[in-house]
Amino acid sequence: MSKVLKTPISDAGVEQLTAGDIVFLDGSLVTCRDVGHRRLVERGMELPVDLRGGAILHAGPIVADRGGGRFEMVSVGPTTSMRMEKFEKDFIARTGVKLIVGKGGMGPETVEGCRRHKAIHAIFPGGCAVVAARQVEEIERVEWRDLGMPEALWVSRVSRFGPLIVSIDAKGNNLVDSNKALFNARKAAIVEEISRQVRFIR
């Protein structure tokens, strides 16, 4: 009973989701990572792709050039989303992006951006680059190629892209943050229990 999001994604599509939900994506997905964010937010450049209702993936893919403007996605695993925390809130506000996919969680600024502009962040399982590449039906075009293969904006059409685990919803929930709090809450008692058993220095 997994949900499927389809681009363009509406506010209602975003609002029905809660952190911890599993979704899949149909439609358009654009890779965008460090420099793409920096160009838009810090240098004020216009993004050459319309992201209203769209989805981005924090990833630097391996793409095979098949000639004649045709490309094939070889490998496209998510990269650590936290690196984009500095930019994401402004990025959401400026582009109208609705779905941000990456690895690991993001911080309070992104939570705020998602809440205010109705967007979500979701996690694609790390290290599963071949699965992700196979869910790309076609690379439709590429922008900002001057940034090199990993940083360029690869505009892809995807089918049942996922599983995507919603980590930040539009209601202010942050799954990874609450998990971390849970792990840290468990930690002290466990450390104490082990410590009692390793007093080898007497």
Partner: peptide
């Protein structure tokens, strides 16, 4: 992912 990596002869993680 591991199955696909073997089948397609690609690195399992990028």
């Amino acid at each position: 992912n591991l199955e696909l990596a073997a089948e397609l002869d690609r690195p399992c993680c990028q």
